[in-house]
Measured scan of single mutants.
Amino acid sequence: EQYVVVANYQKQESSEISLSVGQVVDIIEKNESGWWFVSTAEEQGWVPATCLEGQ
């Protein structure tokens, strides 16, 4: 499942990744806490779901 990044995010923990507007990410896991585990071409990590929008 692919989502587009709609807000920049700077990682704050080692388990997170930074996002840039316009990036496309694959969703691996959706957590009810509002944090999703995603994959980019370069890395995987947790990001806030509020930064993502379905395609």
Rank of each mutant, 00 (worst) to 15 (best):
P48H: 03
I17W: 01
S33M: 06
G54E: 15
E32A: 14
E32D: 12
S18E: 02
E16R: 05
I17V: 12
K30S: 05
E32V: 14
S14K: 14
D26H: 07
E53A: 13
G45E: 00
Y3M: 09
V38W: 00
S33F: 07
A41C: 10
V4M: 03
N31E: 09
E29C: 07
V38C: 05
Q2N: 15
V6C: 08
G34R: 05
E53Y: 06
E32I: 11
S33L: 06
K30Y: 14
E1L: 13
F37A: 08
S14A: 09
E1M: 05
G45Y: 01
N31L: 11
I17D: 01
G22V: 00
Q2Y: 05
A7V: 10
Q23P: 00
G22A: 03
L19Y: 02
V47Y: 04
G54H: 04
T40V: 12
V6I: 15
T50Y: 10
K30E: 08
Y9T: 05
E16M: 04
S14R: 11
E42G: 12
V4I: 15
Q44P: 01
A7F: 11
Q44N: 06
S20F: 11
G22M: 02
T40A: 09
E16L: 01
N31Q: 07
Q44H: 11
E43C: 09
W36R: 03
S15K: 14
V24T: 10
V47L: 05
V4P: 04
A49D: 07
I27P: 13
T40D: 06
E42Q: 14
I27N: 01
G54V: 14
E29N: 14
Q44E: 09
W46F: 12
F37H: 11
V47C: 13
Q10A: 13
Q55N: 03
E13I: 12
C51T: 07
V5D: 00
S14Q: 04
V6T: 12
E43I: 08
G45R: 02
I28D: 04
S20L: 14
V4C: 13
I17E: 00
W46T: 04
G45D: 00
Q12V: 14
I28G: 07
Y3W: 05
S14H: 09
W46C: 06
V21F: 05
E53S: 12
K11L: 04
S33V: 07
V24S: 11
K11T: 04
G34D: 09
T40N: 09
S39K: 12
Y3Q: 08
L52I: 14
F37P: 00
V4W: 06
Q55H: 13
G54M: 10
T50M: 06
T50I: 08
G54I: 15
G34I: 03
S20K: 11
Q23C: 08
Q23N: 12
I28M: 09
S15T: 10
D26N: 15
S14C: 13
G34C: 03
S15D: 14
A41P: 15
Q55G: 07
D26E: 10
V4N: 09
V6F: 09
E1W: 05
S33P: 03
Y3A: 15
E29P: 00
V25D: 01
S18I: 03
E42M: 12
W35L: 11
Q12F: 13
E16H: 08
W36E: 02
S20V: 11
S20E: 15
V47F: 07
W36C: 10
E16A: 05
E1V: 12
N31Y: 06
V4Y: 14
K11F: 02
E53K: 13
A49K: 12
S20C: 07
Q23K: 08
V5H: 00
K30L: 03
V4F: 11
V24Q: 07
W36G: 01
F37G: 02
S15N: 11
E1S: 08
V6E: 04
T40S: 14
Q44T: 10
V47K: 00
Q44W: 03
S18F: 08
